[in-house]
Design a protein around this nucleic acid. Sequence first.
RNA 1: CGCGGGGUAGAGCAGUUUGGUAGCUCGUCGGGCUCAUAACCCGGAGGUCGAGGGUUCAAGUCCCUCCCCCGCAA
Length: 313
Amino acid sequence: MRIVFMGTPEFSVPCLQALLNAGEEIVGVFTQPDKPKGRGGKVQMSPVKQLALTHGLTVYQPKKIRVDGLADLQVLAPDLCVTAAFGQILSQAILDVPRIGTVNVHASLLPRHRGSSPVNWAILQDDTVTGITTMLTDAGIDTGDMLLKREVPITDQDTAGTLSETLSAVGAELLIQTIRRLKAGDCPREKQNETDMTYDPMLKKEMGLLNFEEPARALFCRVRALNPWPCAYAETAGDVLKVWAAKPAAYSGGAAPGTVIAADAKQGLIVAVGDGALELLEIQAPNAKRMSAKAFLLGRQIAVGKPLKEAMI
RNA sequence: CGCGGGGUAGAGCAGUUUGGUAGCUCGUCGGGCUCAUAACCCGGAGGUCGAGGGUUCAAGUCCCUCCCCCGCAA
């Protein structure tokens, strides 16, 4: 079966790898164009492209596949397209090319968490379970009929990073199963229930701002949901303090939300929040590297009793 | 050549402007105090100051080259 794979970030890599391992015939790989990234503005290949090249696969990098990728795709004459976090929207014309259809690996239990950042949103909304859904892509965003699903629990230790890693492995497995059953002709297919659906917008940096009026649990979830990107942060005088890890802390005093109630190498850095307190475990000051709050406090001081915003020295 | 910050004891930092015997907090080791302790007191070990070269009587500090880390922007 002629398969065209479309994917871009690290999440997509296990799916492509699994297809290769399964001996599928991959006739082409579509991924986002190389872009300047990181310090120095060096151009970097997407993780999918890197893997594709090591296996000698032909790589296509249209800016917008629905505009300048259609011809290439048609020439490839795929039986099936597989997408996993490709990052571009497929038009009906694109979807019409593969004979069987387009299978998408989506990192949530659809119809919940449609959109481009399902893993982050699942943690942000304190879901206890999420998972992978394979689906047949249609012209809507994550609205196509569902094929196979597998649940994955979310623990308090999970961050978007760790959970995404877990889900990508599960997704790769489920993708292979899905293709097997499509080939066998016994793959279940179910319409999405529109009344249960949620659509989550793309992540923005501003979503990382910690509002200490919120409950500790919500802040805890936000920190995990936005790790490793875009990362939660607290406002300080003129700048921001990135918060990589935090946890709710016991506190029954009456300090106003946002007040620093402890800041030393023994107790750590604790801030009063809406319903208690939050201990900032791992932080990163501007121009500095990330480190435990306790290590940070060995060399720098934060005033206790003031709002964190004003307490950085 | 996108903009910028930084590499000093096991950890986190100061010291570099105005060269002149390397300092702080914590940890660590030993001793003491205590019912006890993550508390307190006394004492000790631990650093070729990222690498190489240069200037100088003298370089963590000034000059040149290189390596590594990080923030912003994308």
